[in-house]
Simulated assay, not measured.
Amino acid sequence: MSVTVRYFAAAEEIAGTPAEQRGAATVGELRAQLLAAHPGFDGVLPRCALLVDGARVDDEHLLTGSETIDVLPPFAGG
C-alpha cells in the first residue's frame, strides 16, 4: 500500500523532488517517515499542512493506500 506525496514550495526544495511514493498506515506515521527521510524537514514540516485528497486531517487519520497527500508550507502574502 503506498500513497503519493506531493511537495510544494520549500517542502519540495527540502525533499529534492516534487513527489514520491510512501507506505504508511496513518498521517502521523507518514509524517515520521518524512522527517526521517528528509532531515531538513524538522524545521518546516511541523508548520506544514498535510492535505489528504484535498482535505486537512489530523495525524490519526487512517490511510488506505490510494490517497494523494499534499505537503503545503505556510505561504506569505495577501
Rank of each mutant, 00 (worst) to 15 (best):
S2R: 12
S2N: 12
V3I: 05
R6A: 04
Y7R: 01
Y7G: 00
Y7T: 07
F8N: 00
A9W: 00
A10C: 04
E12V: 05
E12I: 04
E12Q: 15
E12R: 15
E13K: 14
E13I: 13
I14A: 02
I14F: 02
G16L: 06
G16W: 05
G16R: 01
G16N: 09
G16Y: 04
P18A: 02
P18L: 08
E20S: 13
E20L: 14
R22E: 14
R22S: 06
G23E: 11
A25M: 07
T26K: 10
V27Y: 01
V27A: 06
V27T: 04
E29G: 11
E29V: 11
L30E: 02
R31D: 09
Q33C: 10
L34K: 04
L35H: 15
A36P: 15
P39G: 03
D42N: 12
G43A: 15
V44S: 09
V44K: 10
P46V: 08
A49W: 12
L50T: 00
L50E: 08
L51G: 04
L51D: 04
V52C: 11
V52E: 04
D53W: 01
D53A: 06
D53T: 06
D53Y: 02
A55M: 12
A55N: 14
V57D: 11
V57F: 08
D58H: 03
D58E: 09
D59V: 06
E60A: 11
E60P: 07
E60V: 07
E60L: 10
H61W: 13
H61D: 03
H61M: 09
L62G: 09
L63C: 05
G65D: 07
E67A: 11
T68A: 08
T68P: 02
I69S: 05
I69M: 03
D70Q: 13
D70N: 10
P73W: 04
P74A: 02
P74Q: 00
F75V: 10
G77N: 07
G78C: 05
G78W: 05
